[in-house]
Design a protein around this nucleic acid. Structure first.
Length: 175
DNA sequence: TAAGTGATCTCT
DNA sequence: GAGATCACTTAA
């Protein structure tokens, strides 16, 4: 049986959650009522007030507020004037961290993902559950550690060498 | 490789 | 209020 991932799954160290999210299912109820399910295969961790690449590095603002909230909430933001980004908040309350969903199923690219799943700002701050229409499930797949690739994050050069180079991006290799 | 696009944040 | 920036995508 596929179990819905609860707050307790996300309320753990961000890097651990990021790795374990690979191979899980992202489930979305589209506005049309159609249910889409796809396996998460690419994520990035944004972990805490020290992480210069994390939006919350500059403190708590209206935009980053949700990252300080309890784990398991959805963080969606708009960037480059046209793209929505989907994140899931991790870690304890008042610890700003989240995981960016970059790819799932055969969709590669964070903005393509949100476009394909009709995800926009209306989902921001909502809990990831069936009522919201967007949640994660454990599909009981065995993910071998050797099939996980860790690389630097994409598009975060502004964070400075030290933080831009951290291997916080996790990719599930094909097959 | 660069243009497109607009919310957000940091100055005045 | 003005200006810069930006966790990207697409078309060349």
């Amino acid at each position: 049986m596929h179990e819905v991932l609860k707050t307790s799954f996300f309320d753990r160290p961000t890097l651990v959650v990021a790795r374990e999210l690979l191979g899980k299912d992202l489930v979305r109820i589209l506005p049309s009522g159609e249910v889409v399910r796809m396996m998460v295969n690419e994520v990035e961790a944004y972990d805490g007030p020290e992480d210069r690449a994390c939006h919350a590095f500059r403190g708590r603002t209206k935009r980053t507020d949700v990252m300080f909230g309890p784990a398991g909430r959805i963080y969606v933001y708009f960037v480059y004037g046209m793209h929505w980004m989907l994140n899931i908040v991790t870690g304890p309350k008042n610890y700003p961290a989240a995981i960016l969903l970059r790819g799932a199923g055969d969709i590669v690219g964070p903005a393509r993902l949100t476009k394909a799943l009709s995800i926009d700002g209306t989902l921001n701050c909502l809990p990831a559950d069936a009522e919201t229409g967007l949640w994660f499930e454990d599909a009981s797949r065995q993910i071998d550690l050797s099939s996980i690739l860790a690389t630097p994050r994409i598009g975060v050069d502004y964070a400075g060498k030290e933080w831009a180079e951290k291997p916080y991006r996790f990719v599930l290799k094909n097959e």
